[in-house]
């Protein structure tokens, strides 16, 4: 039991996620039974299965809820989140050079982030607030489908869409495939542009693609993602297991109305926004 629990901590970083460890553990050990009861539910339930509905949950699926109401009130939070990600991951700074820029999490206006949503008569808060944009760790990721080397892959244990920088051939097929513009390519050696070097995370070589990794390396150490930690205590960004009904993130999702980016594409993003 203890061994299994530790294993879960490593894959999902559950210890940091406000005491959801125990129920998640139950779920992990009784995985198939749990999945089958849930799998049957939609068939009898009132909610008709639409094209955008998601399949019955199995295993751990990490996700994120970004509460834009909080960020609108404290715009500095987003800056803090971005710079903590930059520092944690040795992201180079090309000083606004659009050609070379490497972005894991960044700011964009509502209309750019939610291109499928109407932008007429937006409330002032939505018009004036910069939204956080990052990889959605899609449940059905087109980037993984396109990658010819499995350098981009979905981690089975937690649903993270991860990358192997040493396998990537730099064909950039995944960049064409990602409908969210979440991927960046190292057009040149990024190392001279890394402002503050963090020895705990590898720097990249030129010629490979990179993107937000949901802080897989920090989760493995039982830490929260850097951007989540930067907003600690504010509720601006909540991270956790979307498949665990007891998790904090699920309780928020059950309570609040959230939207995902481009749901019509069937990619099933794991990043949700409260606007």
């Amino acid at each position: 039991m203890d061994k299994q629990r530790r294993k879960f901590l490593k894959i999902a970083g559950a210890s940091a996620l406000a005491g959801i460890g125990a129920p998640a553990l139950v779920k992990l050990t009784a995985g198939s039974a749990y999945a089958s009861t849930h799998g049957a539910a939609p068939a009898h339930g009132a909610a008709p299965a639409t094209g955008h509905a998601e399949a019955a949950p199995t295993g751990v699926r990490l996700g994120m809820v970004i509460d834009m109401r909080v960020i609108a009130d404290h715009p500095a939070l987003l800056d803090k989140a971005i710079s903590s990600c930059t520092e944690a991951h040795n992201i180079p700074d090309f000083a606004g050079d659009r050609k070379n820029e490497i972005k894991w999490i960044w700011k964009a206006p509502f209309g750019s982030v939610f291109t499928e949503h109407s932008t007429s008569h937006l409330p002032k808060m939505v018009q004036d607030t910069d939204f956080a944009v990052l990889c959605n760790h899609c449940d059905d990721p087109p980037c993984v489908r396109a990658c010819p080397t499995k350098a981009t892959f979905k981690v089975k244990a937690n649903g993270i869409v991860a990358m192997d920088f040493h396998r990537c051939i730099g064909c950039r097929f995944c960049m064409a495939a990602c409908p969210y513009g979440a991927r960046s390519f190292n057009w040149q050696d990024p190392r001279p542009y890394v402002k503050k070097y963090n020895p705990d995370f590898p720097t990249r070589m030129r010629g490979v693609v990179e993107k937000c990794n949901f802080c897989g390396e920090r989760l493995a150490l039982g830490k929260e993602p850097a951007c989540v930690e930067a907003c600690k205590g504010t509720g601006a960004i909540v991270f956790g297991d979307l498949n665990d009904p007891q998790s904090e993130i699920r309780q928020i999702l059950d309570r609040e109305f959230t939207i995902q980016r481009k749901p019509s594409l069937g990619t099933k993003p794991s990043v949700f926004y409260i606007v």
Partner: peptide, 25 residues
Amino acid sequence: IMADLGQPLRALNVVLHPTPNSMLF
């Protein structure tokens, strides 16, 4: 294709890690 690769020396990864869901394969 070779000219376009960011890491041309790794081109053989397409063969070493065959990925039938990729159209490039």
